[in-house]
Design a protein around this nucleic acid. Structure first.
Lengths: 193, 193
DNA sequence: GATGGTGCCGTAACTAAGTTACGTCTGTAA
DNA sequence: TTACAGACGTAACTTAGTTACGGCACCATC
């Protein structure tokens, strides 16, 4: 077959180089030439293995969800999972923005990326006892906290202890989770009007 | 003086053209050449009036917060303000991403942009009765909902009625806002924690 | 009224970055 | 041994942010 060990390593090397660049230099550093240089190949390699920058970003995104799930899966409780979520995002801010923030402007997620994200979402659904609506609420909330903190557009000065705020936010979420069945129901969120 | 009517119009024309491009073509369409063509001037005009693409994005961001505050300020209740928030974001998705999402990768917010964002935040603080921590929680939550919906990375398929989910999320926020009475407007300084 | 300066503006060029054309080399299969 | 397919590099094409440079209009001063 065409998949030989060395060629697989080339693909992995390029992907690792790209993620490393993302971590050290931000989204701007993620150029095809930079990636190629860091991986020790020419720009053509990126096209051979990923079809272009779009495919590379797609692979970065999927790898991100894998790493993300690993980090979250080891947390014992809902609260700890919430903390692990923020921790991963702060440790990999640009990677997180690639996954959720459209920072690579030309990139639009393909079906593979959407499927991978959905898989992570189902993990969260399981964590909160099967209530998809509440899982969505939880994801939206922690995502919002993390995005505000990473992008730094709101309350960028240090007047807030964002860690404390985040913990308080998790506690508010727990109030919706822990009672017998208080929060939104699984089938239909109670609409307002 | 140097500020004559026609020159002010040139700046406003460029800014309007840029926002229009953002709306119709997304972040990718926001090139200096495109903006110049749409505004009926050369690329130099963008540098004369905004100092470059960075300054243009900064102006777009500030204009966005102005329009945003206008849309939110007319809403009569907390709940309606929440609906207006999502409405504005969905009506101006790329503009919203420029303000909150780092979609223009090279752009980093200057102090003027951060100050303008803080001003909008204080409007929210006022709306929730002066509790800054709870205001931050509210912003994070609605921001998270809107970002998930705009970027479409989680639950992108139509298995969810995102509008209903969002309304449910607002109701959960209301539970945290109005322990004493559920009327909610803004004036009473009911401390949260 | 002439002169000089300041600021707005366009043309053209420079540089960086995504992409592609094309040729080469290597390994495998017939 | 030969032919093909896949991986790879070099170089060029295209787009986009930016800058150099020169012209022109308006204004203040003499």
């Amino acid at each position: 077959m065409s998949i030989v060990k060395s060629t697989v390593d080339t693909r992995a090397t390029i992907l690792a180089a790209a993620i490393s660049l993302l971590r050290t230099g931000g989204a701007d550093a993620l150029t095809v030439r930079n990636v190629a240089d860091a991986a020790g190949c020419s720009t053509t390699g990126v096209y051979t293995w990923f079809g272009g920058k779009n495919g590379l970003v797609e692979a970065i995104l999927i790898e991100g969800f894998d790493s993300f799930d690993d980090a979250l899966g080891s947390a014992p409780t809902f609260y700890d999972t919430g903390l692990a979520y923020r921790r991963w995002a702060l440790d990999n801010p640009t990677h997180y923005l690639v996954m959720f923030g459209h920072v690579v402007s030309s990139y639009e997620p393909e079906q593979a990326a959407l499927d991978r994200a959905e898989e992570s979402f189902f993990g969260l659904v399981e964590l909160v006892g099967g209530d998809e609506a509440f899982a969505y609420h939880v994801w939206a909330t922690v995502h919002g906290y993390v995005m505000l903190e990473i992008t730094g557009i709101v309350a960028a000065d240090n007047q807030f202890d964002v860690e404390l705020l985040y913990r308080a936010g998790l506690n508010l979420l727990l109030q919706g989770l822990s009672p017998p069945q208080t929060g939104v129901k699984a089938d239909g969120p109670n609409s307002h009007t």
